[in-house]
Simulated assay, not measured.
Amino acid sequence: MAPTTPDPQDGPYRPGYELVAEQLLAYVAEHDLRPGDRLPTEKGLAELLGATRNVTREAVKVLAAIGRLSVRKGAGIFVAAAGDPTDQQLVHYQPTDMEHVLMLLDYRRLIEAETARRAATLATPIEVRAVRDHAARTVEASRAGDVTGFGAADAAFHDAVGLAAHNVFLQSGVTNARRFAGQSDVLLFHGDVPGSLETAGAQHVAIAEAIAAGDPDRASALMIEHVDTTRHQFERRIRDRVFNIPGRPQAPDQRFSPLREAGA
């Protein structure tokens, strides 16, 4: 299971800790480990994966930071404990596996379309104002090239739509999707932002206006379009990453992460 560093001529460089992080998650899945199960020591993991201890340590740190592993001083490395029973079924989610990420986006398409539909029917005037305000903030952030500000406004927008749907299970579903999407964002894109800020902001505003107008069919359709745009941007970004297509604009102030957006 030794991680390999690709030849730059064969494709884009991937840091060793990223490859080892992938292997660690695969190890958890292959051994059907569950939250609370102990992993081998750092030294043991390094030997199992054919990696150096320094690289293994960095991989463990990254996975701990995104909530997949728990490092307890003096006790060891564990599969992170889940916050609720449904997480037990998702502990083997592979954030760098294309099939898994597309399943996540498919889930988001279903759940957020219904969330937008219900918000258009049930939102109070105060909730409508919040949805509109957060949508407008994403547009402002996109024009300023403020990726961090956009991410915060984006999360607030989707949270506001979830709140306006008046269903705690839908709210929870949107929140969980964001959490898993964030894991993929960290491991695949390292903070890169491979999608249009302006496009996402404009879509948020259109969804907000459909909710404000009390048009559930339009709100749902626009949310589906929004998620489908995210999916297309993700797939294109992965193709660029795999095949190292030159000439693509990469300016961070013009792009957003579809995976962060997927959960936002």
Rank of each mutant, 00 (worst) to 15 (best):
S184I: 11
V20G: 04
A264V: 11
A116S: 12
G50M: 02
I111F: 13
E198M: 13
L104P: 01
G67N: 03
Q250P: 09
N244C: 06
L110F: 14
R137I: 01
L49P: 06
A113W: 10
A59H: 04
H100M: 12
P246L: 04
L170V: 05
P85E: 05
L163E: 15
V161E: 01
L122K: 15
P258H: 02
I245S: 07
M98C: 11
L104S: 07
T175I: 14
R132S: 11
G16W: 10
P85Q: 03
A75V: 06
G76V: 01
G182N: 09
E127G: 01
D192F: 13
A75P: 04
E114C: 11
G83L: 05
V71P: 00
P249N: 08
R129E: 15
A200V: 12
P246H: 07
T52L: 02
G247T: 05
M223R: 11
G36K: 03
A200G: 06
R57N: 12
F150K: 01
P194I: 06
D7A: 03
G16F: 10
R108I: 07
Q23D: 14
R236D: 11
Q9N: 13
V101D: 05
E235M: 11
A219C: 05
Y13I: 08
T138Y: 02
D133Y: 05
S142G: 06
E261S: 15
R109C: 07
A156M: 00
Q23T: 09
F180P: 03
G263C: 02
G36F: 00
V20A: 02
T175V: 11
D10W: 08
A141G: 02
S70A: 12
R129I: 09
R53W: 03
